[in-house]
Amino acid sequence: MWIITIHSKKGIKMFEFCTEKEARERFEVMEGCKILSEVIYFNDKQLIET
Score class of each variant (00 low, 15 high):
Met1Glu: 11
Met1Ser: 09
Trp2His: 12
Trp2Met: 14
Trp2Ser: 10
Ile3Met: 12
Ile3Glu: 13
Ile3His: 03
Ile4Glu: 07
Ile4Thr: 10
Ile4Leu: 04
Thr5Asn: 07
Thr5Arg: 15
Thr5Glu: 15
Thr5Pro: 00
Ile6Arg: 10
Ile6Gln: 01
Ile6Tyr: 01
His7Ser: 12
His7Gln: 06
His7Ala: 04
His7Trp: 12
Ser8Gly: 15
Ser8Arg: 02
Ser8Pro: 05
Lys9Ala: 09
Lys9Ser: 14
Gly11Asp: 08
Gly11Ser: 03
Ile12Arg: 14
Ile12Ala: 01
Ile12Phe: 03
Ile12Tyr: 08
Lys13Ala: 09
Lys13Arg: 11
Lys13Tyr: 12
Lys13His: 06
Met14Trp: 02
Met14Cys: 10
Met14Arg: 13
Met14Val: 09
Phe15Ile: 08
Phe15Asn: 01
Glu16Cys: 00
Glu16His: 09
Phe17Lys: 00
Phe17Pro: 10
Cys18Tyr: 02
Cys18Thr: 07
Cys18Met: 02
Glu20His: 05
Glu20Thr: 01
Glu20Gly: 02
Lys21Tyr: 08
Lys21Gln: 09
Lys21Phe: 08
Lys21Ser: 09
Glu22Trp: 04
Glu22Ser: 15
Ala23Trp: 04
Arg24Tyr: 08
Arg24Gly: 04
Arg24Trp: 13
Arg24Met: 15
Arg24Ser: 12
Glu25Trp: 07
Glu25His: 09
Glu25Gly: 04
Glu25Tyr: 12
Glu25Val: 12
Arg26Pro: 01
Phe27Pro: 06
Phe27Trp: 11
Phe27Ala: 14
Glu28Asp: 07
Glu28Lys: 15
Glu28Val: 06
Glu28Asn: 07
Glu28Cys: 06
Glu28Ile: 12
Val29His: 11
Val29Gly: 03
Val29Pro: 02
Val29Ala: 15
Val29Trp: 03
Val29Ile: 15
Met30Trp: 08
Met30Asp: 00
Glu31Ala: 07
Glu31Cys: 06
Glu31Asn: 11
Glu31Met: 13
Glu31Val: 06
Glu31Pro: 01
Gly32Thr: 07
Gly32Trp: 08
Cys33Met: 10
Cys33Trp: 11
Lys34Thr: 05
Lys34His: 14
Lys34Asn: 12
Lys34Ser: 10
Lys34Ala: 11
Ile35Val: 11
Leu36Thr: 07
Leu36Phe: 10
Leu36Gly: 13
Ser37Ile: 09
Ser37Gly: 07
Ser37Glu: 15
Glu38Thr: 03
Val39Glu: 05
Val39Arg: 03
Val39Cys: 01
Ile40Trp: 01
Ile40Lys: 07
Ile40Met: 12
Tyr41Cys: 03
Tyr41Val: 02
Tyr41Phe: 14
Tyr41Gly: 10
Tyr41Thr: 00
Phe42Ile: 09
Asn43Arg: 01
Asn43His: 03
Asp44Trp: 02
Lys45Glu: 06
Lys45Thr: 05
Lys45Val: 09
Lys45Gln: 00
Gln46Leu: 01
Gln46Cys: 05
Gln46Glu: 11
Leu47Cys: 09
Ile48Phe: 06
Ile48Ser: 02
Glu49His: 04
Glu49Trp: 04
Glu49Val: 13
Thr50Ala: 10
Thr50Ile: 09
Thr50Pro: 13
Thr50Phe: 05
Thr50Arg: 11
Thr50Gly: 13
